[in-house]
Design a protein around this nucleic acid. Sequence first.
DNA 1: TATGAATGAGCCTTCATTCAT
DNA 2: AATGAATGAAGGCTCATTCAT
Lengths: 202, 202, 202, 202
Amino acid sequence: MRPRRTYKKSEASRQQVLDAAIRALAENGSAHTSVSDIAETAGMSKGAVHYHFESKDDLIAQVLVRCADVMRERVRAAWDAPGEPQEKVRRALREMRAARSQGSAELRVLADLMARGIHDPKLRQALSAMFEANRQEVHAHLEQSFRELGITPRVPVHVMPRLVIGILDGLALHDFFDPMSPEDEEFVQSALETIALSLIGG
Amino acid sequence: MRPRRTYKKSEASRQQVLDAAIRALAENGSAHTSVSDIAETAGMSKGAVHYHFESKDDLIAQVLVRCADVMRERVRAAWDAPGEPQEKVRRALREMRAARSQGSAELRVLADLMARGIHDPKLRQALSAMFEANRQEVHAHLEQSFRELGITPRVPVHVMPRLVIGILDGLALHDFFDPMSPEDEEFVQSALETIALSLIGG
Amino acid sequence: MRPRRTYKKSEASRQQVLDAAIRALAENGSAHTSVSDIAETAGMSKGAVHYHFESKDDLIAQVLVRCADVMRERVRAAWDAPGEPQEKVRRALREMRAARSQGSAELRVLADLMARGIHDPKLRQALSAMFEANRQEVHAHLEQSFRELGITPRVPVHVMPRLVIGILDGLALHDFFDPMSPEDEEFVQSALETIALSLIGG
Amino acid sequence: MRPRRTYKKSEASRQQVLDAAIRALAENGSAHTSVSDIAETAGMSKGAVHYHFESKDDLIAQVLVRCADVMRERVRAAWDAPGEPQEKVRRALREMRAARSQGSAELRVLADLMARGIHDPKLRQALSAMFEANRQEVHAHLEQSFRELGITPRVPVHVMPRLVIGILDGLALHDFFDPMSPEDEEFVQSALETIALSLIGG
DNA sequence: TATGAATGAGCCTTCATTCAT
DNA sequence: AATGAATGAAGGCTCATTCAT
């Protein structure tokens, strides 16, 4: 099975490029990041980047896949820790909010790609898929929690992920351009819990 | 020191360029819209665009101002119609949500500029100012409504605009990439009203 | 004679442009001075400059005429003060040298135009005429001095201006890029006098 | 860390561009020579020029280096042929004068760059260095000649290069715009020798 | 597998010039 | 006599992409 040896090396380089791309794109945005920049960040030549990826657009598409994976993994991690269902919701809320406020490289890239997606159908489709996947993830967890708690929420379970993730993203967006004070942060946090309760109803 | 002759034509041309810019940017995004494109859309020469605006960046900054104005006007219009305070809140919610879902040119441009703002401090500052202004607008209206109703909401009034606008923006964001069915739309709408009530408390 | 009134005003503006042009060209060189710059320096509109001068090239040609006049006037002034012939030569030498080292606006412009003249036949012709005129000026003075002193120099009088002005220009050129120390300045000054004497012979 | 493969072609191309640049600049001057012109002269694409040189300014700076090298080589060659010291001075004088009157491409470019150097500090510095190097060259030769002849000249040896080169440059300058007749040429030549003798004194 | 060289299209900007007013 | 508006031709530069090695 000799081919795997060569393949491995190439695959490693490919990942190297992908990592570099995320770093570079996070720093300057896709519009101001050239293939050269990425190559330099990856410590390779421009030609090498084009050896691994058909085009810049292709590379960016793959970057999106990677970022989406990372984000989904984060959502999952937020729920996977053990605990009481109620506690789980509260913690997940907190974690997902934190993930959005840390300005991680992936998040910045994602934001950039969303803007790009406004005018690029292919990208839009990929983003749409990512959103859907995230909602699925949350949906599964919510359903299980409700089942465990024996609760029938006031709002249909299948729209709740949209509300939850949407709200978190919206707050994160505003936070990015205009961060709030720690006190307000607290108010918002408890408001979120109030909101959650009101949606579950009772 | 008013100019003897006012050369009205200039201001008209300037607006023409600005309009064209919004149309062009809405269609292809700032990264894929050249000054040439804008000039063509405006029916003028490239030189003319630079006669009215120092640089592409300058033009874009002015586009932002214009879009921000339009958006703020929309927020205001949503509250200005007469009616019972409670009815007002409900209607405003509906209107603001509508404004976000129609995919107006200004909104698309704004979304694009936000992504640009991630890496462009000047733009970020302008966006931050716009967000602040919008919140102020909502804040003023909310405060008045509460006073009229003699209500002291559970959540501090000054964080409510952030919650309200943030939530709407977040939902709009997801909506853009993945519109929901009319039925879900209804569920969300009523969920929003539930949320609103829960924040006001009681 | 009414026309003169209007003419006068226009003529004044023309001079204003010419002055501004010299100032602007001296500062940035003809290649980096736009008609706009000149207009601004003159406190007028771009259109006004083109009203007075057919083209930028035309304006530059007229600038050359003006600078040439100024330089010739300087050469003349150097000799016109009264005194013993021998003293006159020495003083003229000193003055002409000084004129070249003060970095006057006209001199800088002239240097710039010379470079332009390398590739622009029209300009070269004008410069050639200027050089000739300067030599004539010096020639006339030298001839008179020699007649007054009853001397027949070793070198034909008509080549002396070329030598004198050439030498001074060459030293000035090097001085511009690499000024010498005051002591060396003195050595050069006395060397020049030695040279002068050697040319006159004896 | 020598590169495994040397890609010799690159260096060759670089030289090709440099040569083309000198030819093009000599013909039209730096202000009227575009990168396109140079590329065309070199038989390459505009992009290729920018691949080898960071910017037009950079290219021009390198052109200066090359021209300066050529000129210095010429100065050296003028002195290097064997012969009696006195004969050497005479011959060098003649050679250096000839170098200045042949209107070589390098000389034209140099003249152009000097004008540019008036307003461009970086270039001025480079030119200053070139002048200094040339003077050093002459200085070394003169010193040796005087030692061999056992002569102590009237003028300090270290200012003589400035005088010699300056005089030659000045005459060349005038010559360029207004060439003299062959007879006058002779007069000037012998005048130069007279001057040389007078400086050495005795 | 990876590199350096080269291309060519496109971009932003500058600027001399024209023209209606 | 003078101005503001507008044009169009370059110009310098960046960059995704191709290709021989």
